[in-house]
Computed example of a mutant assay.
Amino acid sequence: MKLQVINPNASVSMTAMLEAECRPLCAPGTELEVICLPDSVASIEGSSDGAVAAFHLMQAIRRGEAQGVDGYVIACFDDTGLEAARELASGPVLGIGEAAMHAASMLSARYSVLTTLPRSIHILERNARSYGVDRRCAGIHAANIPVLSLESDPESYSTLRTLGLALLEKDQSECLVMGCAGMAKWAKALQKDLNVPVIDGVQVALKWVESLVSLGLGTSKYLSYAPPRQK
């Protein structure tokens, strides 16, 4: 099978990090491509960034379909363009936010999300309600770290660890969700330090897409995600 992990921003370095985290997880026979969108925004921080990125994401999905891609992961925790991508793709499309929050609901009675900037909180709250996983979400919190600073600021990990400990106690939650694809490289270390499951949605979504494709399952085209009408 052929899978794509699409980073819908333009960061080459973040994309390289995602590839390093994802490639070892693939089963034998899975062909993985991890791409970014060079003409997109530098990072996705808010709804206007998301709208621009979604446009470029649609072009990437169309190219992927022409190349025979069997399934996709959208590596932005806002799940940028997810609904539209499902209309265009013949195979399954998973957003890392939806995948991570569902996984957290399976692993704990209450989970917390730690994202980058406060402006993302209302987007993630809205998504959680839409996915039906908000009842187990004890809180969505921001670290006040811009997306691109996750790579450049040497104190980023220490900040996430300190905040993670504090909000787990505050929320009385049992699982921590990394609320940005740029945090993927720290999930294992945080899980060891915090002693609770720490979920990176990129890796969860990749393994779930791989499983769905192997089972011959794809997005329903019956109504909501039918291909766009020809006009």
Rank of each mutant, 00 (worst) to 15 (best):
G201E: 00
L168R: 02
A181N: 03
D171Y: 01
E210T: 15
R161C: 11
T116K: 09
G218L: 09
N9Y: 11
Q172E: 15
K192C: 12
Q230W: 13
A53S: 07
K2P: 01
A27G: 05
Y225H: 06
A205M: 02
A100M: 12
I121V: 12
V133S: 06
N144G: 09
M101D: 11
Q203F: 01
R135F: 12
S43H: 04
A205R: 08
L18Y: 00
R119A: 14
R62Q: 11
G201T: 00
G29L: 06
G201H: 02
A103C: 15
G95W: 04
A85P: 01
A53T: 06
E31W: 14
P154D: 09
G71A: 12
A99D: 03
G182V: 12
Q230K: 13
E155P: 01
P8C: 05
M1Y: 06
R229C: 12
R129F: 15
N9F: 02
L215F: 10
A75R: 09
T162I: 08
L206D: 01
Q172N: 15
Q172L: 05
M14R: 09
I96Q: 00
E21G: 06
E83G: 12
M178K: 00
A226C: 13
G29F: 02
M1V: 08
G71Y: 01
L206S: 06
Q203H: 11
D153A: 10
S48T: 14
C180M: 07
C26W: 05
T30E: 06
E98M: 08
I145F: 07
A27K: 11
T115D: 06
G46Q: 07
A205S: 01
E83Q: 12
A100W: 12
R129Y: 13
A143V: 08
G182L: 07
E45Q: 15
W186M: 15
T116S: 13
L107I: 00
A27W: 10
G182F: 13
L215Y: 15
C22G: 08
L194H: 02
S48Y: 06
V196T: 05
P146F: 05
P197Y: 05
C175L: 04
L165Q: 15
A100F: 03
V202K: 00
K231M: 08
S120N: 14
M178V: 07
A75H: 01
L206V: 03
Y157I: 04
L190S: 03
A27H: 04
L223C: 13
V213F: 07
V12P: 08
Y222C: 13
I199Y: 01
V41Y: 10
C180H: 10
V177Q: 02
P24Q: 09
S13G: 11
H102G: 10
I35E: 14
Q59E: 14
L168E: 08
T159Q: 13
D134H: 11
Q172W: 01
A54T: 10
